[in-house]
Design a protein around this nucleic acid. Structure first.
Lengths: 354, 354
DNA sequence: TCACGCAACCCAAACGATTGGGTTGCGTAA
DNA sequence: TTACGCAACCCAATCGTTTGGGTTGCGTGA
């Protein structure tokens, strides 16, 4: 197989200037002004010739020379727990889109939700001289955000919030309430929560809001029915198995703060001989593309993931301009499907009867 | 909320040199030699002082100045169809890991499997002056690879192969055969294939190998039982619905070239009142983390996704060095689960009987 | 008539790092 | 004694852009 080898030298401002017989600074100014002539830098005619030649030769400014001179890179760094989590990958799509629209490039890195790795990755990005950071993996109580602030690094949070710092998230509080209202309305009274990681505001907020609303409705969620978990299918399965094994019987409804955890839990229930949607209702969160297509379609709270990513970029741009920004909590929407619908009533009723 | 504002100026070689009272070139050479002294650039004692101060001041070389001078960026560009596809996201994790180990950064972009966008993204990466490209989205017959070759851009392919160019992929041919052997052994004789996009070697190779092996075993796959599809759950559902609607009855086994398509198909079968694992066997591909946790665990072909990504980086490094490289096809492994196991025999038998 | 303004340019110093080629000054072999 | 080698440095050009500040030369108002 052929080995392509090195690329060829690119066209520079100097090349263009030489070919046109004018000075590079003139070329530079022309190519930077969007108007016809750059604040008197060149005649209309010269400007036209410059632009034509640049186009013809396929000139594209060297980003390193530019960055070296201007001290900014038009690059933003994004850190997420892991891109193989569809939720974060989708948010990143929004980030990439919005960044491209404002002529920025993005670097992404996985931190695997590890504190040391978060720091390490942030340092790598800063060493790359990114203009700002988007953190999608902030942990409750992490000192990283304080350090970044102290170092005057422009950044915003995404996905998870952290009080006192600007973030673009789903309104997880509303999301949790929607689920409580739904399960209550369908007739459930005995519920459990697969609550996610304790360091992630997503799981914490969804759980807290659910509980609060549930109480307001007159229900109760006993502590042993609130299970911290990983956010992936494996985590959901473990929590599901624990619920099946647990004392006091299986609840009639389970709220998993994440679709993947919900899927894992469904697996555990099924392995225990329970039919999801009949014996036990399951609700997830995020309404990833899988939810609707599962063998038993999953009720889930739809969060505007792409929009969350886009907003994060918009906010970061303002922060980089030194402006103040307010956090944005995007409203979610409950999508009811078979896993918790209609049949759920049966489970709840028979549980009451039994 | 506070607006962090701009970062502060970083330490430069000049700063270090001034503080030590020596010339910046000496500092540069010291910091670049891994040995005690740099080919006689400084005394042991000076070298020590330089390194100590650099560490103390937190010196990190400006990548733009370096790139400007050396004409290389230690950055590699990665283009994938979409990161929200767990398969590509996982391969990218391998890429990121391996790149970090050899001190390279990576840029990823989504092309959405659109030819124009592939070109556009590649141009953006080249404008960013990446040292090389990893393409995870090559289309059969695409001219992009030829153009890149003509321009002497170092690149390798990942995930999908393209004859004549170096690639790191799963051995999809073997994968397709494994599935054929398995379904045949379990007793199925009436099968269908949800074949994926026709421009992707993954789907094409898996399908072709399955068919070839199936014929060798004495079976047959009628053309109307080979359904091209998108790679996501929606695509699988559509294909599944078509199979259900189709003339000549539903096959007893279905091979979807992708786990997500398999999940979509399972949804369609279930909606039609068929029980997967009993009435119809389903096999997926890639063994994503979902497969094992589904309500009906999915038989799937495990492909070493992280390793495929890592290998792509290793290959690209060689290409960037001007060396020749051979394509690597990573061997897959069949993981049999409920969706096609045991019970499948029943379906096949009763189909024969009926 | 003459200075003054303005259009249309040019000049050169940065930005931070790398690197081929010096320049010292000292020890030592012939 | 002298030249030669070598260790330990320094010098300056260079990568491609940007940008504050010139310098021309021509038209024009007073």
């Amino acid at each position: 197989m052929k080995a392509p080898g090195k690329g060829r030298p690119a066209v520079t401002l100097k090349d263009l200037a030489a070919e046109l017989g004018i000075h590079v600074s003139t070329v530079s100014r022309v190519l930077h002004s969007d108007t016809d002539v750059a604040r008197g830098a060149a005649s209309k005619e010269t400007a036209r010739r410059v632009r034509e030649l640049a186009e013809f030769r396929g000139y594209s400014p060297d980003p390193h020379a530019t960055s070296l001179r201007t001290r900014r890179t038009r690059a933003i760094g994004v850190i997420v727990p892991r891109l193989s989590d569809i939720v974060l990958a989708t948010m990143y799509e929004g980030v990439e889109e919005a960044a491209a629209e404002s002529n920025h490039s993005t670097f992404v890195m996985n931190s695997h939700d590890d504190l040391d790795e978060q720091r390490r990755k942030a340092e790598i990005m800063l060493a790359r001289r990114v203009d700002g950071l988007i953190l999608g993996d902030v942990h409750a109580g992490s000192s990283l955000v304080d350090d970044l602030t102290a170092r005057h690094v422009p950044f915003v949070l995404m996905n998870r919030r952290y009080s006192g710092f600007p973030s673009s998230t789903c309104d997880d509080t509303t999301g949790g309430r929607l689920v409580a209202d739904h399960l209550w309305a369908v007739g459930h009274r005995s519920v459990a929560i697969i609550a996610g990681e304790l360091y992630a505001s997503t799981g914490v907020d969804r759980t807290a809001a659910f509980i609060e609303r549930w109480r307001a409705l007159g229900g109760e969620v006993p502590p042993h029915r609130i299970l911290p978990s990983r956010f992936d299918t494996e985590g959901g399965r473990q929590a599901g198995e624990e619920l099946v094994r647990g004392t006091g019987g299986v609840p009639t409804a389970v709220f998993a703060v994440n679709d993947f955890a919900a899927i894992g839990a469904m697996g555990a229930f099924r392995a225990a001989g329970l039919v999801v949607g009949q014996d036990v209702a399951v609700v997830g969160f995020n309404d990833t593309s899988l939810a609707a297509q599962l063998p038993i379609p999953l009720t889930s709270v739809r969060s505007p993931m792409v929009e969350i990513g886009r907003t994060a970029v918009a906010m970061l741009r303002r922060v980089m301009n030194g402006e103040d920004v307010e956090s944005v909590r995007h409203p979610p929407e409950l999508i009811v499907r078979e896993s918790s619908e209609g049949v759920g009533v049966t489970a709840a009723r028979s549980a009451h009867a039994g």
